[in-house]
């Protein structure tokens, strides 16, 4: 067991201007400025930024990272494969967030620190499941760290989604589901493939990311790519990133029924602000119970929260007798990724 003092005296991760820095490995985790060595948890834009010299990531995430960042030099690693970097042993452990997402485990032989990146504990057919890791210090996300966020079962969400889809078609409307282009869209396509023979029509930005999924052998439902001036094939659901709402590719359809899949849809006001008829509570982040379970599973004597409702989480943990503090990072600035 590491005491508070040794973690303080000898931290494995500190926040610098460039990002989360590991002094003993001279490497950064998800740096927000270009650095020499970048250890990447996953390919979302707030975690994987271009410009660094040497990138490292989980092997299953290489396709997405290449598509998004186009690194000059990329080393990929299998899950749990121990890599020696300076005085540290570093390994990537699946985080269940999106394809190829990982937590990064750091050990100097005395202490173990884990940086979770973004993660979820609910099943997702488009990526490897989250694995809890024991550690001394846990650096966690806190996007949905409020007790109002508890995710419904996937069966329930997919039933509701298909019902809404059919109802829209019945009313002669084109159903459009807004979902983040990297991860959420493919998760929905994989869930559909598991359950139905339904087909979707996808926005080009989603299509661009499909090869990375096909390379990893993820089964997806049949799809068509949305093009300007052409109707979506009858009966299909349009999947588009939230930024496409109001854009020409979407507004070319006169009668729309628009919905969104996101953890934020838990709150009525958020859905209504976007003038959506329906919101599906479907998140790639851990809900309140998931965050607390992860903290418990880790056995960490200290918890640091990077982004989201960090104050709520750390204040609560402190009141519960768990030492916790906030880290100021640049993660989680795009709400739509949730």
């Amino acid at each position: 067991m590491v005491t508070k003092n040794s973690a303080d005296r000898d931290p494995l991760v500190v926040v610098t201007r460039e990002g989360l820095y590991c002094p003993k490995a001279d490497a950064y985790i998800d740096p927000w400025r270009p650095v020499e060595t970048a250890l990447i948890t996953h390919a979302h834009a707030d975690h994987a930024r271009p410009g660094s010299r040497q990138y490292h990531c989980l092997a299953s995430g290489a396709g997405l990272l290449t598509e998004r960042v186009r690194p000059d030099s990329l080393s990929t690693h299998d899950a749990h494969e121990p890599i020696t970097m300076g005085a540290l042993t570093v390994s990537w452990v699946p985080a269940g967030h999106v394809l190829g997402s990982a937590q990064i485990r750091l050990s100097d032989g005395e202490q173990v620190w884990v940086v979770t990146g973004d993660y979820k504990r609910t099943a997702d057919p488009s990526c490897d499941p989250f694995e809890p890791i024991q550690c001394d210090v846990l650096i966690t996300e806190a996007t949905f760290a409020l007790p109002i966020y508890r995710w419904p079962s996937m069966d329930q969400v997919m039933d509701d989604l298909c019902q809404w889809w059919d109802h829209a078609l019945l009313k002669n409307r084109q159903p459009v589901l807004y979902c983040y282009a990297l991860g959420k869209a493919q998760r929905i396509m994989a869930e559909l493939a598991l359950r139905t023979t339904r087909e979707v029509c996808i926005h080009p930005t989603i299509a661009q990311l499909l090869p990375a999924y096909l390379d990893q052998g993820i089964p997806l439902c049949p799809w068509h790519v949305l093009t300007s001036g052409q109707k979506a094939p009858p009966g299909t659901l349009i999947l588009a990133p939230p930024g496409a709402q109001g854009g020409r590719l979407i507004t070319q359809f006169r009668a729309l029924d628009e919905a969104m899949a996101s953890g934020w849809m838990q709150i009525r006001g958020v859905r209504r602000r976007r003038a959506l008829t329906q919101g599906f509570v479907l998140s790639d982040h851990a809900d309140w119970d998931g965050l607390l379970q992860t903290i418990k599973d880790s056995g960490a004597s200290r918890v640091l929260a990077t982004h989201g409702e960090t104050r709520v989480l750390t204040d609560y943990l402190n009141r519960m007798g768990v030492e916790a503090a906030r880290l100021s990072t640049s993660f989680g600035q795009d709400e739509d990724t949730a």
């Binding site: 409020l146 007790p147 109002i148 709150i267 009525r268 006001g269 409702e309 709520v312 204040d315 609560y316 009141r319």
Partner: peptide
């Protein structure tokens, strides 16, 4: 919740 501060944070986020 057994925690008033947590409730206030939740209420502030939902607004209802």
């Amino acid at each position: 919740l057994g925690d008033e501060t947590l409730f206030e944070a939740a209420y502030a986020a939902v607004g209802d």
